[in-house]
């Protein structure tokens, strides 16, 4: 897979094979239920019931929008046999947010940043680790070439 900055200040993601498309599909799969993250963040506010009622629904909606946007962008590109998925500068936050949700979710499920040795880890854990590294790399490119200039 190639990830290339565009002249318009965005990014072009160019999948080269079925495995590349699969890893892009896994972003929304790894996010799972976006409300988990909203509830987890709300937990930091203690027993604030107003926070639960007033803020959490907005956060859930925001996280859902990010997840759906990326899912639909990947599905649409594949269905149309596109050579690339373009991320325009004004959509970079949605992509970054979805990738972050996926990494937050993987961390909560597997504690991958707390493990030192992946050589002997189960296949599921190693796979989660490599997906996390891919999402991280994409986030780094977004920050360096797109979001850092905004």
């Amino acid at each position: 897979m190639n990830v290339i900055p565009t002249l318009e200040g965005g990014l072009s993601i160019e999948p080269e094979n079925a495995a590349d498309w699969m890893v892009l599909d896994s972003i929304s799969t790894d996010i799972g239920r976006p409300s988990h993250l909203a509830e987890s963040l709300a937990g930091l506010m203690g027993d604030d019931s107003e926070w639960e009622e007033l803020v959490v629904p907005d956060l859930e909606q925001n996280f859902n929008v990010q997840c759906r946007y990326v899912q639909e962008a990947v599905e649409s590109a594949r269905e149309q046999n596109s050579q690339a998925i373009f991320i325009k500068a004004h959509n970079a936050d949605k992509w970054y947010g979805a990738l972050n949700q996926a990494r937050m979710s993987l961390q909560a499920r597997y504690d991958i940043h707390g493990l030192d040795n992946f050589e002997d880890a189960p296949e599921e854990l190693r796979s989660a680790h490599f997906r996390d590294r891919f999402y991280l790399t994409l986030q780094g490119v977004l920050l360096e070439y797109v979001m850092g200039n905004s």
Binding site: L41, V55, L59, N62
Partner: peptide
């Protein structure tokens, strides 16, 4: 501000 930070997925409280 905490709401904004949570929206950006940063762990924050007050």
């Amino acid at each position: 501000y905490v709401q904004q930070l949570h929206g950006s997925q940063l762990k924050s409280t007050m």
